[in-house]
Design a binder for these strands. Structure first.
Lengths: 113, 113
DNA sequence: TTTATATTTAACTAAATGGTTGAATATAAA
DNA sequence: TTTATATTCAACCATTTAGTTAAATATAAA
């Protein structure tokens, strides 16, 4: 059994583990962007940006539509919320743990009196 | 200016971009674990697990206390919620976009009549 | 039809990653 | 004091990554 869900999470987290790519995501969060727009803020070759874009696409974080000679890139919510869901699931555990700790502390405090 | 926040996000997302490490996180979410406990489900050398653990520690996702010859590993909420916050911030943008789209569709529907 | 623009592809490189094995360290148990 | 257990460290290896430059492709503009 191949686990596509796991593969996808690998790709998503990997894609987000790079400052340049996260900045690109930020830019696309504001609005759609062409490849050269995405490249503009960075001191990096267009080929370099093109590669980063591919990593984001592999993770399904970005979709592209080709309009003449310019490519228009936009974010895809689906993958992002997959990652968020994973994180939030485990945060819940911690928060429960903390709630537990807190209630223990409250008990302890009561017994002080 | 060095950006520690960005570095940290790189480390966190990188740490989470590996199935083995995510499973280790899951285990520690349930309760504290020793290194050998963490290693048990995997078909991998202890040295391998030890390295994965280091990656999680570098990301501040895990803290370790040494108790005799066994090391006890537990999760650190802080880093996880840093990642969650980053993700949620950008999800907000998308959701706003979707709300906008939705209201446009409503308008269009009205004009149909 | 020629030239300029937008982008990708290919080939290359240095560094990082994910794994291994074998030896080292430190502590606990016999 | 010897032996067993828990863990890390060091050295190594194959693969992936993040970047480069130069050439290729495709479209738009002169």
């Amino acid at each position: 059994m191949v686990n596509h869900y796991e593969d996808n999470l690998n790709d998503i987290f990997h894609a987000l583990a790079d400052s340049t790519r996260r900045e690109m995501v930020q830019m696309m969060a504001e609005r759609e962007r062409t490849v050269s727009e995405l490249a503009e803020p960075f001191d990096m070759s267009l080929a370099g940006i093109s590669k980063h874009l591919k990593v984001l696409e592999r993770a399904n974080l970005v979709e592209r539509s080709i309009n003449g000679r310019t490519h228009i890139c936009r974010l895809n919510t689906e993958s992002l919320s997959q990652a968020t869901k994973w994180l939030q699931f485990y945060e819940r555990f911690w928060n429960n743990r903390f709630d537990l700790l807190e209630s223990e502390l409250m008990k302890a405090k009561k017994n002080e009196n």
